[in-house]
Design a protein around this nucleic acid. Structure first.
Lengths: 338, 338
DNA sequence: GTGAAAGCGCTAACAT
DNA sequence: ATGTTAGCGCTTTCAC
């Protein structure tokens, strides 16, 4: 009854229940060998004191913390947000916990990873952000599994990665635009260092090349909406005017669409095709009807979770997992008004 | 040079450096009394072994984990996302870490809070989600500070809360709509249990009552876009037709706007005023130009962080902090086309 | 099935 | 300034 301010320990519970401290530990360990009666006594005492096992102590002994370290780049993206949501749901089922940091697009994750390693995280998950080769060496040496989400592993790193099939998506967008009759194509991408953008572009280019001409205009839009607006302006000012623009993500595409409509007075679809990548919620809103290649969040996170939760000795595989999305054809690329 | 798979301990470093284990601890404690030379020796040895202090062990002793527990409701909201980003930036400066759970709107946070308490979090931050009275009693008894963000404390709980001034926002929206000449008003809110919606509505009603008539039509839109669409349809089908709708958040307002435009063929602004709350990014996009009362994320998070970081003995105050936003007047409530 | 005892990796007195 | 010692709260042998 008399609750105390500081947290009671297993010892306190043991005393109240008239058992040993070890018995308390066992009562809270699923599948331990305790008599039912003892167990009840312990739980009763624990309830009275408001006792909860201290997971920090448990982690210290077990050598695994139950904590997954997450560093998220570009935290304004709705896609990453729903990925976080799906991941949290999945991991909390498995009694794992997420220690999170967010980082503005393009910044390094390193300082945060340092902190995470000190908490002895069971795994490190990087969403849309990279890791320095120094830290990645450390993780490899210490056996900390690193999983890259939405960003493929760099040259030598050899970590597991889970991404949508960016190349295929880019390819399908190109195919679709050409099929619709668009010919003077443009691309808004990110600077070289972003592999995601590069892969989408590569697929796009690949299809065009196969069809005969890989020519398309190109501008960098980086991460911000403001950047995308500037890139769209530059692209739309070129002569002869482009008739379709593929943007490396939906955020860029929506911005591009608005520039086309409200600054250049173009009718999106018939006069200018616009396609994005990711199929975020807004893409399907009536105001936009943006053609996009979807990123299946649930499937991606499912894969991530299975990599995280697999037993440690299985983690040899540093595979690159690519999951196919689906081309969502919408009005923004209907060249002939319906 | 020879890195080992398992993490080296302070002991290992001590042996290599030829000092005591305590010296290693001191070398890694800012402001401890160590000779510069010893310190160097230790750091050198640590580097060789790839040693990092184990924060779990430190937390165990210190009785504080350096971890802030966060439970986030309605994780699709861009507002909460940017709040998370701001918080992460602020807290990692102070060497605090965020253990996060996300919960679908309307669900209970309790099971996750259980987990967080076992990690002995230094504080519990609830974003847009409540806590059961049983757990809140526990937190109070154990001296775990609880901070409510964007959701005011229930009757008896007595926790600190940080919110935008919802009532004032609702009031200003009403004033603005009336000033623009709108007269047949509607409101899309959330069910009773959501205090946020209730407060905004209260302010809205308050102004109308003061002006003579507090009559307005009302529908519940809850959290999902789908719900908002249904509510908007119902509201717009009533006769005589409403001429302005205030939605309890911007997500609802954008959905409402699209229903008005694309299903009812109304010109938003002249024919139907639409106002939201929160001033999310999209509100200012050319496609929407949504009038909204802003929620100053940075100021709000600043306050939250200061509550979290204040020394424990100062935490008597369970104040209710309300921060004013600002009415952003945009085209969605220009009754006379400009 | 249960208790006693050792110890996870570290910090914090206390000596020296 | 540095080493020694005693725990933090728990899990895990090992006897019984």
């Amino acid at each position: 009854m008399a609750k105390q301010l500081s947290n009671p320990s297993a010892h306190d519970v043991a005393r109240l229940a008239g058992v040993s401290q070890a018995a308390v530990s066992r009562a809270f360990t699923p599948g331990a060998s305790v008599a039912k009666a003892t167990r009840e006594k312990v739980l009763q005492a624990a309830r009275e004191l408001g006792y909860r096992p201290n997971l920090l102590a448990r982690s210290l002994i077990k050598g695994e913390s139950g904590i997954i370290g997450l560093v998220m780049g570009y935290p304004r993206s709705i896609f990453l947000m729903s990925a976080l949501y799906a991941l949290s749901a999945r991991l909390s089922q498995a009694q794992k916990h997420i220690l999170i940091y967010t980082v503005e697009g393009g910044q390094a994750a390193d300082p945060h990873i340092e902190g995470l390693l000190q908490y002895r995280v069971d795994a490190l998950l990087l969403m849309g952000i990279g890791i320095s080769s120094k830290l990645s060496a450390h993780c490899r040496a210490k056996g900390v599994p690193v999983i890259l989400f939405n960003l493929r592993s760099g040259e030598t790193q050899g970590f597991a990665s889970v991404t949508v099939n960016n190349r295929e998506g880019g390819r399908q967008i190109a195919e679709h635009l050409i099929a619709q009759g668009y010919r003077r194509l443009g691309f808004i991408g990110a600077p070289e260092i972003y592999r995601t953008s590069r892969e989408r572009e590569a697929g796009f280019k690949e299809y065009l090349a196969k069809r005969g001409s890989a020519r398309f205009e190109r501008e960098d839009g980086c991460y911000d909406r403001e950047d995308a607006i500037l890139a769209a302006r530059r692209l739309l000012s070129r002569k002869p005017r482009l008739d379709a623009i593929f943007c490396w993500n939906d955020h860029m595409a929506l911005a591009c669409m608005e520039v086309a409509r409200y600054e250049f007075g173009l009718e999106v679809g018939p006069e200018l095709g616009v396609a994005g990548f990711g199929d975020i919620d807004q893409a399907s809103w009536p105001s936009f009807q943006l053609t996009s290649y979807s990123q299946p969040v649930d499937a991606l996170i499912q894969k991530v979770a299975s990599l995280i939760l697999q037993p440690p000795h299985m983690q040899k595989s540093a595979g690159q997992f690519m999951i196919d999305g689906e081309l969502k054809r919408r009005a923004s690329t209907h060249r002939i008004a319906t």
